[in-house]
């Protein structure tokens, strides 16, 4: 089984008890994200649509590449890969 690291953005950390990096297992990006969802209730619906695609305000990265430019959620992962969940963040001025 392939183990990857998933980086959890600040807005989603309430679902991971504040942890910012989680290890997950899976052969593809989708499998790793679903493994994460199984471990942390409520998280999955924040990241993926019911169809299993990244939601409109979320991007999923494998290393520095947006999975959109790879094979999407079916992109295969290798041992030690880093998956980043990157949601839109507005904060700035006031």
């Amino acid at each position: 089984m392939t183990t990857v690291t998933v980086r959890i953005p600040t807005p989603l950390r309430p679902y991971t008890q504040g942890v910012d990096e989680v290890r997950a297992e899976g052969a593809t990006v989708a499998e790793a994200i679903h493994a994460l969802g199984a471990a942390y209730a409520g998280l999955l619906a924040r990241v993926l649509t019911p169809e299993g695609e990244p939601r409109q305000f979320v991007n999923i990265y494998l290393g520095s590449r947006n999975v959109r430019t790879l094979q999407g959620m079916t992109t295969r992962v290798t041992e030690g890969d880093v998956i980043s969940i990157v949601p839109a963040v507005a904060g700035g001025a006031t």
């Binding site: 807005p11 989603l12 924040r46 939601r55 409109q56 305000f57 979320v58 949601p87 839109a88 963040v89 507005a90």
Partner: peptide
């Protein structure tokens, strides 16, 4: 699209 308020 922007995220829902509770995520942002």
């Amino acid at each position: 699209e922007p995220p829902p308020a509770d995520l942002a």
